[in-house]
Design a protein around this nucleic acid. Structure first.
Lengths: 229, 229
DNA sequence: ACGAAACGAGAGCAGTGCTCTTGACTCGAT
DNA sequence: ATCGAGTCAAGAGCACTGCTCTCGTTTCGT
């Protein structure tokens, strides 16, 4: 059978070996990592790498997909922990942040500036949505189970254009939650990644240095109250 | 006098011309713009550009400083508008967003992923702080004038390590405001740039498309209430 | 008017992504 | 066991990059 042939196995191993080396290079070179340097480190010639990834962008795509999946899995397992909704929310947030801190270059690759000239293929959108799906499910479950207790009494009503667009997107995001809760969830979503991005991209330098984890935790608790925890 | 010599004037003009071309290239090539391409577009040879910028990184630094100053100026003039504190807050936020939308590559350069291998020199920190200074002054003025009415009754107390670090940083950021207000201001600060970053980096694609301005406005109003407007 | 400094142009070096060709290897089917 | 097809690593080569150095020329301050 072809899938177990020597060639297929070697190909599989070499493919992940290339990705591993490329991810190590990502830390120092960022998105413009050198395919030739990867090949050099693996003791092969650059043209050989093209047997495994038809272009540098395809290698980047493979890395991006892997990173999205890793972060998504980290978020999923954290959110699946047993405990109160608040505990699960905090576990989720810290899981995302921990992964980002441990893989700064990878986080920059998937959540930082878009790589110029790179067009993300369709294969990336599903892995990219994993963490967002966790969050949406968290909101939906919390709402139907009653764990999220929010009163939207003094919420500013969204302008009609925004509301219709949100209603339109609701079925594919988080069905059966009210628009005000979705808006608050979006605030929390943006805040979560906003804090991480600011932290990793140096916005807290010479300002918040030793208590960044505490700051993140505080912001996540503020957002927890925002979504009704 | 040397500052009025032909050479000095030509040098001044060519310097800004190089920066202008480089910024145009920024849109298509991002942070890895080509010094040679810039030179080519200006009809000179690549080595000539090195008379004006000793390295590509120095050219990037010049662009970064210019961008910080432009955005800072946009924020300053917007915040100086006459009106209620809420109006000034909204004007500030939209000014930042408008500048970012009009200069997407430039925004990515200063607020996106750190350029690998690039170390920002000291000259950049003051321009970088301009928008933040506007915001800090806004908080301080609003607090002393009583325009910001916040009750911190059910605010979660920050952990002591975070509080001491914030107290330590308070004098250089926004003197004479209480820590709870500073924390809420940080939330608003992060949210402002978080929404813009998500919008520009494609996080809203296939989700919020035509009502992005309304969404941003809504988030800014949520944050306005957060800081007591 | 003269020496110094600044300047543009060109050649050159090492590196890059990518293509094409060449020869060796492995595979599945006969 | 053999043989054609597909796969592989290697190398040469193209156009590009940042950067350095040298070489005449121009401009400056004195």
């Amino acid at each position: 059978m072809s899938s177990n042939s020597i060639r297929a196995r070697v190909r599989q191993e070499l493919t992940s070996e290339i990705k591993a080396v490329a991810r190590r290079q990502l830390a120092t070179e960022g998105a413009n990592l050198s395919l030739r340097a990867v090949a050099r480190e693996l003791g092969m010639v650059s043209s050989a790498v093209y047997r495994y990834f038809p272009s540098r962008d395809d290698l980047l795509t493979a890395l991006i997909i892997d990173c999205y999946n890793e972060m998504g899995e980290a978020g999923e397992t954290a959110a699946a922990v047993t405990g109160t909704a608040l505990e699960r929310w905090l576990a989720f947030g810290h899981a995302i942040r921990d992964w980002a801190l441990a893989h700064q270059a990878e986080y920059a690759l998937i959540y930082g500036s878009p790589v110029p000239g790179y067009r993300a293929p369709r294969d990336t959108v599903e892995p990219a949505a994993r963490t967002t799906v966790v969050l949406a499910r968290f909101l939906a479950d919390g709402y139907t189970s009653g764990e999220l207790r929010v009163t939207y009494a003094d919420d500013a009503a969204p302008p009609p254009e925004l509301e219709t667009e949100l209603v339109q997107a609701l079925p594919v995001i988080a069905p059966d939650i009210p628009i005000p809760l979705l808006l608050r969830g979006l605030t929390a979503w943006i805040q979560l990644y906003g804090v991480i991005t600011f932290e990793l991209f140096g916005r807290f330098n010479n300002f918040i240095e030793s208590s960044r984890r505490e700051f993140f935790d505080h912001q996540m608790r503020v957002m927890a109250r925002e979504i009704g925890l």
